[in-house]
Amino acid sequence: MTEIPAAPQRRLRVLAAMSGGVDSAVAAARAAEAGHDVTGVHLALSANPQSFRTGARGCCTIEDSRDARRAADVIGIPFYVWDLADRFREDVVDDFVAEYEAGRTPNPCLRCNEKIKFAALLDKALALGFDAVCTGHYAQVITDADGNRELHRASDMAKDQSYVLGVLDDRQLAHALFPLGDTVTTKDEIRAEAERRGLAVAKKPDSHDICFIADGDTQGFLASRLGKAEGDIVDEAGAKLGTHEGAYGYTIGQRKGLRIGTPAPDGKPRYVLDISPVNNTVTVGPVEALDVTALTALKPRWCGTAPAAAGTYTAQLRAHGGETRVHAELVDGTLNVTFDEPVRGVAPGQAIVLYDGTRVVGSATIATTERATAAA
Results as ranks from 00 to 15, higher is better:
176 A>P: 02
76 G>V: 15
177 L>T: 12
294 A>S: 06
373 T>M: 00
123 D>P: 05
16 A>G: 08
21 G>Q: 12
269 P>K: 00
82 W>L: 13
357 G>P: 13
52 F>K: 12
145 A>M: 07
301 R>L: 14
293 T>L: 14
269 P>Y: 02
231 G>R: 01
362 G>Y: 00
351 A>F: 04
361 V>K: 05
274 D>C: 09
293 T>Q: 10
13 R>T: 07
10 R>A: 10
325 R>D: 08
175 H>M: 02
368 T>N: 06
52 F>D: 14
9 Q>L: 15
202 A>K: 06
363 S>R: 03
132 A>P: 08
3 E>R: 14
257 G>D: 09
286 P>H: 10
26 V>K: 05
190 I>C: 08
321 G>L: 05
326 V>M: 10
101 E>D: 15
9 Q>R: 14
296 T>Q: 13
37 D>F: 00
238 G>S: 08
50 Q>G: 08
136 G>K: 11
242 G>V: 07
18 M>V: 07
289 A>R: 11
126 L>A: 08
304 G>Y: 01
181 G>E: 00
293 T>M: 15
319 A>S: 15
104 R>W: 05
133 V>T: 15
313 Y>M: 04
68 A>M: 10
182 D>H: 13
14 V>I: 13
161 Q>W: 06
14 V>D: 00
287 V>T: 06
119 A>T: 09
40 G>C: 14
20 G>R: 09
275 I>E: 05
17 A>P: 05
34 A>Y: 06
181 G>W: 00
272 V>K: 03
63 E>A: 15
215 D>K: 06
57 R>I: 03
23 D>T: 00
249 G>I: 05
162 S>W: 02
62 I>K: 13
236 E>N: 07
345 G>D: 04
222 L>P: 02
178 F>G: 00
94 D>Y: 04
240 K>W: 13
155 S>L: 13
254 Q>R: 10
326 V>D: 03
267 G>L: 03
171 R>K: 09
40 G>N: 01
51 S>Y: 13
368 T>W: 07
337 V>L: 12
323 E>C: 06
60 C>V: 07
201 V>D: 11
248 Y>V: 02
184 V>W: 14
94 D>H: 10
140 Q>I: 01
200 A>L: 08
194 A>F: 07
196 R>Y: 10
108 P>F: 12
279 N>G: 02
76 G>N: 08
87 R>C: 04
102 A>C: 11
60 C>S: 14
